[in-house]
Design a protein around this nucleic acid. Structure first.
Length: 513
RNA sequence: GAGCGUGUAGCUCAGUGGUAGAGCAUCUGCCUUUUAAGCAGAGGGUCGAUGGUUCGAUCCCAUCCACGCUCACCA
């Protein structure tokens, strides 16, 4: 490092200090004053024994005085000279603290330098104020972490009807996503969404573990990607000097594990797709994939409805969820209908056996815009997406898809041109995708070759041929049922969020500045 | 990728061709059961960035940046 560079590094913090706004300068000054008063601004621990909500809920007016020790962040302060109230927030919520100079002595002077955002420990006894709020009468106050940056102050009030009214919520979406830590501090409902997300995932795990499926991990960095139609992220391994792809799906590796002899495997993990971003797409997202040997897609439908139902109950405590004017009930059994059956039900047209020309005519009659390149399968899918999917409010399985759309699914046992595949829909959105897995290695090779042709024609999302996967199938894979569930979108559905960014802690953003 | 919109104090937002305002937050004073605490006073801004028009731009114009919404693409 050059002398010049060294100097620059040394000077940088001071330069930064001069750039601070008055609020942050003030807090740094307070920090120094606190140190002068002998207050350690960043102690190592605090042995709390109590939490806000538990303390409030357990309070009884006629019971003997109870001392509690809890810790949290100051969210509001109301000073009245020689006494003060503040609200302290911990993981369970907020509790009011009453601080009196007579009881606290010299630390009360230090407390004058405390701010909204500081993290403190409180020891005191529970009581009810004149206004009726269960609070802590502080006997001891400990600073646990001095905050140097002002937090957005969100004020709230309970109106006559008992509804909580929030004033000036922290609402700038860009700031909320970029500084999610702030969003989480000031918005309990945001914290709640992510708690529900965790409950969904742990609900799935419990369900699958109870059935003795093995949770596994497969490579994120892959020499060849596959298992879905999407463009991958590309990276490079220096030591091997090879190109690697970030996985777009887990499918092909998990099926290799079924070949290896496990009866059931699942993986909950991030996939990466190098595509556009919108309210339903984030470049990295979480999938559950599950494969079970000796089962088919009909068996998988039963498992799916049972698993999603249990997870919905785990998340919301109920099998139903209200979205807009709809109440969606995940209780099994879910309705089942074939894709052609559903199209007939909602358009009155039977598309079975129709030629590409017929289908184009139908699209025109139904005022559905299509592209020249689309084949029979693509056209059927367009009609389904436009005329059927929006009507699928209650959970429903749509079964038996055109073979062209599903290069990894097994051909239907009785219907020509179809595969044994189902997708579940709810609230007009896809919930999962599953099929009887293709285990005929020769058929799989032919399907891959179709994909290679599409690729040669410029379809960047067509799947590359995976010779090692074919080798695995050639050793023999038992009949297998497979399932994929997008965790982010299911979380959206179960928490009533309309953007994927509201169910991902740190959604992808362009870099700042 | 296209259209529309937004960007002003820490946060939420007004506003104007003559270099800016409110509420909360902050600071000072008063206040020992307050709660959107209150009362009195004060400080705080590169008005997203860069160009242009103009005597003068935060405002008008252009470009760029970031974000949002809708659509397209995409499962």
């Amino acid at each position: 490092m050059s002398e010049k560079t060294k100097q620059k590094l040394v000077q940088e913090p001071q330069v930064e200090h001069e750039d601070l706004n008055v609020l942050m300068q003030r807090r740094r000054e307070e920090l120094e004053e606190l140190k002068k008063l002998g207050v350690e601004p960043y102690p190592h621990e605090f042995n709390r024994t109590d939490f806000s909500k538990e303390s409030i809920d357990s309070f009884k007016d006629d019971a003997p005085q109870r001392t509690v020790m809890l810790a949290g962040r100051i969210m509001s302060i109301r000073r009245m000279g020689k006494a003060s109230f503040c609200h302290v927030q911990d993981s369970q919520g907020k509790i009011q603290v009453y601080l009196k100079k007579d009881d606290l002595g010299s630390i009360y002077d230090a407390y004058k330098l405390f701010d909204i955002g500081d993290i403190i420990g409180i020891t005191g006894f529970l009581f009810r104020t004149k206004m009726g709020e269960v609070s802590i009468h502080a006997q001891k106050l400990t600073l646990l972490a001095k905050s140097l940056r002002p937090l957005p102050v969100v004020k709230e009030k309970v109106d006559e009807q008992g509804n909580k009214v929030v004033y000036d919520p922290f609402s700038d979406k860009e700031l909320r996503y970029r500084q999610r830590y702030v969003d989480l501090v000031v918005s309990p409902e945001v914290r709640e969404v992510f708690i529900k997300r965790a409950k969904l995932i742990s609900g799935f795990r419990k369900f699958l573990d109870a059935k003795n499926f093995l949770e596994v991990e497969t490579p994120v960095l892959q020499p060849l990607y596959g298992g879905a139609s999407a463009r991958p992220f590309v990276t490079h391994h220096n030591a091997l000097d090879v190109k690697l792809y970030l996985r777009i799906a887990d499918e092909l590796y998990l099926k290799r594990l079924i070949v290896g002899g496990y009866d059931g495997v699942y993986e909950i993990s991030k996939d990466f797709r190098n595509e556009g971003m919108d309210r339903n797409h984030n470049p990295e997202f979480t999938m559950l994939e599950l494969y079970v040997a000796y089962r088919d897609y009909r068996w998988m439908m039963e498992l799916t409805e049972g698993m999603v139902h249990e997870a919905a109950v785990a998340v919301n405590g109920s099998s139903t969820i209200s979205i807009g004017e709809h109440t969606i009930d995940f209780k099994p059994p879910w309705k089942r209908i074939t894709m052609f059956g559903a199209i007939k039900e909602y358009t009155g047209r039977d598309l079975r056996g129709k030629s590409e020309e017929d289908l184009r005519k139908t699209c025109k009659e139904l005022h559905i815009e299509i592209e020249a390149a689309q084949g029979v399968g693509g056209l059927i899918d367009e009609i389904f997406s436009a005329r059927v999917q929006p009507h699928l409010i209650q959970p429903i399985f749509i079964t038996d898809y055109p073979v062209e759309l599903s290069p990894l699914a097994k051909k239907h046992r009785s219907e020509q041109g179809l595969v044994e595949r189902f997708e579940a829909f709810a609230n007009g959105q896809e919930v999962c995708n599953a099929f009887s897995e293709l285990n005929d290695p020769l058929d799989q090779r032919a399907r891959f070759e179709e994909q290679v042709k599409l690729r040669a024609r410029g379809d960047e999302e067509a799947q590359p041929l995976d010779e090692d996967f074919l080798r695995a199938l050639e050793y023999g894979m038992p009949p297998t049922a497979g399932l994929g569930i997008g965790i982010d979108r299911l979380t959206m559905l179960l928490t009533g969020q309309t953007s994927i960014r509201d169910v991902i802690f740190f959604p992808q953003m362009k870099p700042e500045k």
